[in-house]
């Protein structure tokens, strides 16, 4: 963090649905995308974030504030991230991973993708197709053959009850 003195600088971020958010620059520059804009001097007025909606941006800012308030202690940061993501559903996580990617926040990206993986881990193939919007392009015979090859990996799969 920059060792600046005096009043902390505040940035205004604008989501793609025109919501405005104020955030301390020191927290916002966790995003490399925002940091670059600040360094390029584009941070004078409002910073438009065209790929992030208001709901997701609010969540990302909560994260930025939370994580930057924790001093350099990886353990504490990790437990903050775990807690922060613990109650998020798949759709929210998907929005967040896109936002983290766009904002170039590697720590959030890592944490969210790991969380998505954790949610997916025991899910069925059908669940994954549905949630990721993937079309099944196998013929039934082909699919049965692939399944047969890895039959043991279908043990212990959760039943899909959370459509």
């Amino acid at each position: 963090m920059a060792a600046e003195t005096g009043t902390p600088t505040t940035l205004t971020l604008k989501s793609n649905d025109d919501e405005l958010f104020s955030v301390a620059e020191s927290a916002a520059i966790l995003s490399v995308t925002i940091r670059n804009m600040v360094e390029d001097g584009c941070a004078g007025g409002v910073i438009p974030l065209d790929n992030v909606d208001g709901k997701t941006l609010a969540s990302v800012i909560t994260y930025m504030n939370g994580i930057s308030a924790i001093p350099a202690d990886e353990e504490k940061k990790k437990s903050y991230r775990d807690k922060f993501l613990s109650d998020k559903d798949f759709e929210t996580l998907a929005d967040m991973v896109l936002a983290a990617n766009y904002l170039n926040m590697s720590c959030l990206m890592d944490a969210v993708s790991a969380k998505i993986a954790q949610v997916m881990e025991k899910k069925s193939v059908g669940w994954v197709r549905r949630k990721f919007g993937i079309e099944n392009d196998y013929t039934p015979e082909e699919e049965a053959a692939v399944k047969e090859e890895h039959k043991w990996t279908f043990e212990g799969v959760e039943t899909d009850d959370d459509n």
């Binding site: 993708s113 193939v125 990721f132 099944n136």
Partner: peptide, 26 residues
């Protein structure tokens, strides 16, 4: 729909058993 590079990031974090099962996805 998540772009493929993000899907890959997620897949890298899955255990092998899940990855092998998800060969059936597409």
């Amino acid at each position: 729909n998540l772009p493929e590079e993000i899907i890959e990031e997620v897949l890298y974090k899955l255990p092998i058993k899940s990855l092998l099962r998800f060969k059936c996805v597409s």
